[in-house]
């Protein structure tokens, strides 16, 4: 949640409480004076604005939406190198790993890589 959205949500909630408090006061005074309680238009407007601000803040502060289309999701995985591809093990087949060949390959890489890297 960014600072802006936090601010919007807190301002929205505060003024919502303020509107509720005002409405409560109006109702008490109206009862004491024995008149028909009629909510002033500024309290109504404040309520609507407060709810709108709080909702806006929540929407702005929510996480980025995740892809719901298969091809977009798969495309993102491939863009990141494909390590998260759930079907990758069918091509790498870790249960059929030829560990001796892999060890030789690594030793080879370490010998050449050490020269190349330094």
């Amino acid at each position: 949640m960014s600072a802006l959205s936090r601010l919007l949500v807190s301002v929205g909630l505060l003024s919502l409480f303020h509107a509720a408090y005002s409405a409560q006061e109006v109702s008490i005074i109206a009862t004491q004076l024995h008149v028909k309680p009629d909510l002033p238009v500024d309290i109504k407007a404040e309520t609507l604005v407060a709810v709108f601000l709080a909702c806006l803040g929540l929407v702005l502060g929510s996480d980025q939406l995740k892809p719901i289309a298969w091809n977009v999701w798969a495309g993102n995985i491939e863009k990141e190198g494909g390590a998260a591809n759930p079907f990758r093990l069918f091509e790498d087949r870790p249960n059929y790993l030829d560990i001796r060949a892999k060890r030789r390959e690594f030793a080879e890489w370490a010998k050449n890589g050490a020269i190349g890297a330094s």
Partner: peptide, 16 residues
């Protein structure tokens, strides 16, 4: 359940 979970082993640098 017996599948070994995958990690990118292809790259020797990752393995190291």
């Amino acid at each position: 359940s017996t599948q070994i979970q995958y990690y990118n082993h292809d790259d020797p640098a990752t393995a190291m």
